[in-house]
Design a protein around this nucleic acid. Structure first.
Lengths: 338, 338
DNA sequence: CTTCGCTAACTAACCGATTAGTTAACTCCC
DNA sequence: GGGAGTTAACTAATCGGTTAGTTAGCGAAG
């Protein structure tokens, strides 16, 4: 399929020339910005007609250059977080998109798959293509330090980042709800299934679990690393093979995806859920199909969080003060796994 | 949280002034574009040092204006197609992101939620913010006609659009596989569950089903509309209530999501799958959790399709010829629902 | 001793819109 | 009829790079 070389698009100057007016006059008619410049009705109509005839369309790049702002908001997800089928991410992206749309801004997805260096990524983020950035990152990501030192407005999402305004869900409160739910069902020994990385949210859930366990007479017998969709690790297996009485009776997973993998593994191993092992997650993702078991979890409003992040970012961009941390409430969802 | 007003970022002129050279010299050193302009090693080093000291970062907007190209690729999904939790979409976005990353281009997600007019959306898409567009749309969307007439390079994805290079999966072939699979299991009467909209892919699956049914002695007893996640409609219910012999024994759904809703409904109605009704889908989405029943479907390589779309779009942008239609092969996935 | 060619730069113009400041012509009032 | 005020426009400068074309100075060849 071949296409004709596109003719150069008409510019404001073209319109102005055809209408026998200056660029400024044409601009003020077509972009209704300047009230200073007055235009007669006849001239205004002539300019509009000619613009329509020439199919004039303003050039956003030129405007951005002059205005020193592009109306584009960037979204960057730290390495490894952007894996496909990350449910939580589709919610987030949906929310960002809606919020940007309302604000009449565009959303730019920064990708970083091909082992690009921090410098490289930092350059891309700060090259003025975006007016600001919504960021999901590990607290120890060197990029975060660079961004903090830069003048680019940044809002952290999901995982609080010190020194940056952050929008998060109530990690501690949610975990407390889960712990109380388990305690009320007689569980005395539980274990935590953590992502192996320095995610602030996971650290908070972990800490909250320890506190809540202590408060309700439960013991956290161990913490085992587990990625997004990971099978049981060696330590975890060992722990589950302990004799009755020492064995944990519930798995507290840092995310629903992680919890669902535990369910799958249990089935493989012949462990009954919840009789042999209760399982709880975090996120409250909405499965697109009926799952074998409905997971007990905590529903986190990710779409709303993303919206808030955009709102705060716009405040930052426009120079207003923003709260250091915005925490959104979560709610317990009781399923069949406890 | 308040932040200091950012100091104006240093520009090429700033660097050049500090280094006692012209903008051009600084530009050629820092952006290694021009081989024409020669620079001595000493000067080069001085410029680099000063740029580093000032933390100079090139302004992408200015560059884009001069080059008349932004290196940004847009993605637009027709109204109603961009619903959250659309599995197929996360695959697509993932593929787009990867491909853009490889090409060192950015990906801009255009959103259109707030009942914006076609004109409005068209203006946004053609305001030169993006060099080209990957488009998923209904064939009868008026926007498509406008885009075809514009000079913006566009590649259609998933649903072929006449007059635009399109990247699709083998809708007809996949449907044929499903039909043969059903025929081999003795099904003689089936029905089609279609999205109510003018999606080329659905039309093709529908047509292929009729052809394959005819070829294998099956009857398509009806076609019932069903959105992404729709319960059974009145016509569909009626049809399923027909006496043995007239009742269809299999539902061919236009998407996996639609098929999964049928499974849920069957459970509600006490219909056994596959004994009372066999169900097949299309897409082969990878559930993040173990589903109650594994769906028989056709796996479509959406991530790869998205990658191809970007590749073709880049060809278009750079003026090369592209095939009118690229069809990617699909494969049958046998589940427990047939 | 001039001319040629190379090095290492430079100046001017341009991309397309926006902003600040200015002006010619006309009306109105005294 | 002259000054004030309004209308309807204009010119020049700017945003931050990139491109085309030009030039001063030097060494080597003729």
């Amino acid at each position: 399929m071949s296409f004709p070389k596109p003719a150069a698009a008409p510019t404001l100057s073209d319109v102005a020339a055809r209408a026998n007016v200056s660029k400024v006059t044409a601009s003020s008619v077509l972009h209704k910005s300047r009230s200073n410049t007055r235009v007669s009705e006849a001239t205004r109509q002539r300019i509009l007609d000619i613009a329509a005839e020439l199919k004039y369309r303003p050039n956003a790049v030129a405007r951005s250059l002059r205005r020193q702002s592009t109306s584009i908001i960037g979204f960057y997800c730290g390495h490894g977080l952007a894996t496909a089928h990350n449910f939580f991410l589709s919610d987030v992206i949906g929310g960002l998109q809606e919020a940007c749309d309302e604000q009449r801004r565009d959303l730019l997805l920064h990708g970083a798959f091909h082992r690009r260096s921090v410098d490289d990524i930092f350059d891309e983020l700060t090259n003025r293509t975006v007016d600001g950035l919504v960021l999901i990152a590990y607290a120890d990501d060197p990029l975060v330090e660079r961004l903090r030192a830069s003048s680019l407005p940044v809002v952290a999402l999901a995982d609080a980042l010190p020194g940056l305004p952050s929008v998060v869900v109530d990690d501690a409160g949610g975990t407390r709800l889960l712990a109380e739910h388990l305690a009320a069902r007689g569980h005395r020994r539980v274990y935590f299934r953590a992502s192996e990385d320095a995610l602030t949210s996971v650290a908070r859930r972990h800490a909250a679990l320890r506190d809540a366990a202590a408060a309700h007479g439960m013991t956290v017998v161990g913490t085992f690393p587990a990625g997004w969709r990971a099978p049981l690790g060696a330590g975890e297996m060992q722990c589950l093979a302990l004799p009755r009485g020492e064995r944990p009776t519930a798995a507290v997973c840092w995310s629903d995806t992680s919890a669902y993998s535990v369910l799958t593994e249990c089935r493989r191993l012949g462990l009954r859920v919840p009789e042999d092992l209760a399982v709880v997650g975090f996120d409250g993702i909405e499965p697109p199909m009926e799952p074998l078991q409905r997971l007990t979890s905590v529903r986190a409003p990710w779409t709303e969080a993303a919206r808030r992040a955009v709102a705060l970012l716009v405040d930052r961009i426009e120079g207003r003060d923003v709260p250091a941390e915005t925490v959104l409430p979560v709610e317990l969802v009781e399923g069949d796994t406890t």
